[in-house]
Design a protein around this nucleic acid. Structure first.
Ligand SMILES: [Zn+2]
Length: 391
DNA sequence: AGCCTTTGACCAGCG
DNA sequence: TCGCTGGTCAAAGGC
């Protein structure tokens, strides 16, 4: 059941750590020490479930490997915690929900420019164009040491952690919002996050980690992983599983904490893949193509490109600041996922509506996170918007 | 046969 | 230096 968006990303960057947490609380337990960014969004989102997305510059998508190029981030001293960053925020709201994206960090990434970018949404359900409402809220980002906490709308908060040079960012969302983010760098990567959330709907990470032998796709992010450890981390309610990318030359690792239900509580990615994403079943099309070869995708694509979606894109498009940013992220709600991709060239997001009771936290080294909240209005609907921007 | 998970042991960093 | 903690190793076994 999950749709996926794949983006190819270049992998150039140094390793970054990405963190995703579905159910998070802002308090972030796992934040490592480091700079902290707090993003606070005005609590005014009328919508109980709105999602705000903040993308710090320099983020590398968790799911996506390659680092993302982000535009600079602006940081301003914040009264409370240090520097306050006000990233440009992009807000797109769909239906009743609102997404805002902000770029925060500024790591310079090498980007692999346009190389290949693939976007492969897997539409599972029908996608209907959704009406978008645009709301804007501007998050504030505060940086404290290496941990970043972002809070969006009243209900969401994201926490990110950055670790040393490599950055680790973790986001935590408040209860009502659930978000999953995936970012795709210019190159293609796939981003997928998982869901979390409701006990009922939670997405379960691939069946993977549990069984031996089988393929394991812990979080179904399109890469192949090998589990090499399991540890019960103090402070974490759930055991943490350690995975390594199985690609011979790739050192990317990821840590996943999942609940007994199999829902992911937190995902932390470290490093950037130095290889293209393995095609699970099908290969993706050429780099430039946005869509993967799958038929489904194509359908979606067209739909994405469609008009309604634009409004959402609009927002993004309007952000000139982001033009250099290549970010891909996806969010998933419960059973369904919502993906958003931002690429210099392409920006797309989709959601399949679902309510998310639980937020997801994602952190990357570079920084990126996405928050997705459930949209009450959207139940049953899914939407995707795709836009290509000329470079 | 190959790849993966499981699992306890080992290692390194830190207070 | 010791103990704790998180991360990794590697043998064993499963599919
Ligand atoms: Zn890899």
């Amino acid at each position: 059941m999950e749709e996926q968006i794949l983006a190819s990303s270049s992998s150039s960057a140094a390793a970054a750590t990405q963190h995703v947490q579905p159910t998070c609380d802002s308090s972030g337990s796992s934040a490592a020490a480091g700079a902290r960014y707090k993003l606070v969004a005005p609590a005014e989102l009328p919508i109980s479930r709105s999602a705000c997305i903040t993308i710090p510059p320099g983020l590398s998508p968790p799911l996506l490997e390659p680092p993302i190029l982000l535009s600079d981030v602006k940081a301003e001293p914040s009264p409370t915690t240090g520097s306050l960053i006000k990233p440009q925020a992009i807000h797109a709201s769909v239906a009743s929900s609102t997404f805002s994206a902000t770029a925060l960090c500024s790591n310079a990434f090498d980007d692999t420019p346009s190389s290949s970018f693939e976007f492969r949404p897997y539409p599972r359900s029908n996608m209907a164009p959704a009406e978008l409402n645009h709301q804007r809220s501007e998050p504030f980002l505060q940086i404290q040491g290496e941990e970043q906490t972002v809070s969006f709308n009243s209900s969401t908060s994201v926490k990110s952690e950055m670790v040393g040079a490599s950055n680790e960012l973790s986001l935590s969302l408040p209860v009502h919002a659930a978000a999953s983010v995936t970012t795709a760098p210019a190159d293609v990567d796939v981003v997928e996050l998982n869901q979390i959330g409701n006990p009922n709907s939670g997405i379960q990470l691939g069946q993977s980690d549990q069984k031996g032998g089988g393929t394991s796709v812990p979080s179904d992010d399109g890469y192949n992983w090998r589990k090499y450890g399991l540890k019960h981390v103090k402070g974490s309610e759930f055991p943490r599983s350690y995975f390594k990318c199985t690609h011979p030359d790739c050192a990317v690792k990821k840590k996943i904490e999942r609940s007994h239900d199999g829902q992911i509580a937190e995902i932390i990615y470290k490093g950037s893949h130095v290889h293209p994403r393995p095609q699970p079943r099908r290969r993706y099309t050429s780099a430039n193509n946005i869509m993967s070869g799958q038929e489904e995708r194509s359908d979606k694509v067209s739909s994405l490109t469609g008009g309604d979606g634009k409004s959402g894109m609009h927002i993004l498009a309007n952000q000139s600041d982001f033009r250099d940013i290549v970010v891909g992220f996806s969010t998933m709600c419960l059973a369904k996922k919502t993906h958003i991709f931002t690429n210099r060239h392409v920006v797309a997001y989709s959601f399949h509506q679902q309510h998310r009771e639980n937020p997801i936290k994602v952190s990357f080294g570079s920084i990126i996170f996405i928050v997705c909240t459930a949209f009450s209005n959207y139940q049953g609907r899914s939407q995707e918007i795709l836009e290509g921007a000329a470079e």
